[in-house]
Amino acid sequence: MDFMLILRDSLSAAVGPAAIVYALAAIGLNVHFGYAGLLNFGQAGFMLVGAYGLAVSAVVYDVPFVLALVIGILASVVLAVILGVPTLRLRADYLAIATIATAEVIRFIVNSPSNADVTRGSQGIAGFAKPFHDLNPYGGGLDIGIVRLSRSDLWSATVGWVLVAICCLIVYLLMRSPWGRVLRSIREDEEAVRSLGKNVFAYKMQALILGGVFGGLAGIFLALRQASTIPSDFGTHVTFYAYTALLIGGAARVLGPVVGAMIFWFLLNGLGTFFGQLTSGADPILPEGLMDQSQASLVRFIVVGLGLMLLLIFRPQGIFGDRKELAIDAR
């Protein structure tokens, strides 16, 4: 049993690009769900249009890289507007249904062979990330014993954490302002806010767009870091992982989604390596009859799920949340 290896795998995942993708997506969900009370179950859709906005315009239409990035962000704005106009008048639970359906519809459209001349179908698109990786200033990877990142991951992580910091700063500045107060009030009771003369629909739309752009950035970052994008990167599980990260860290807290994403990936990778070691080798620690190697890679999800349940029972506010604030809600 190599505990050093387990620790290294866990920490590398927690500070590496995978955690960053989910941190960005969860920051968006935090704006939607944590502050404005919008139950968006289609964050993967926002990530997809961001990634494909970049990839399709850069590869298929030969748009310059920087402009393609802008198109990726604009694509998530457009999705937010199209999604928001008909659905923001709905009650929270209907919004959840509409958003998850929209995200899946978009994924199927992109996946469909009949659109393959633009989206390349299930093959996905590659060959747009060269300008990003060409900017890499690092000579080699990072290896300080407990954290090991490859050269390209190190560059991605650098850019990614800067991006996360900027997004957190934006959320912090907005949420301490009267604008953020209106948003949190809408989460509590939109009729009351309306009765005080605020245009609730406009605020919800602004929140949906802002969180959607953060989701779009997550998708763009994912596409750049792996230098390709395929539809299966944006299944519904992506949204649920991002929600998990948000709930672990604590909703309606600026750093909640970031810490949550790091913990989520720390546990997921650490447990993966742990169970992998238990079942690998000629004479595995766990007998093969109990758990074989292919099962081991799935058991981590069971354990993480169990942990999430315990968290919601014993610390429903997440790591950073305010228990008192949550208790009031449970009337």
């Binding site: 949190r184 009030s185 989460r187 509590e188 009771d189 009729e191 009351a192 806010v193 309306r194 009765s195 005080l196 003369g197 605020k198 245009n199 609730v200 604030e325 009031i328 809600d329 009337r331």
Partner: peptide, 20 residues
């Protein structure tokens, strides 16, 4: 919301304070 801005503000039978 425009009615409220015009100067006609209401309260509710079941109070709507913003709990959190």
């Amino acid at each position: 919301y425009k009615v409220a801005r015009a100067g006609m503000v209401r309260t509710f039978q079941l109070t709507k304070v913003l709990s959190r």
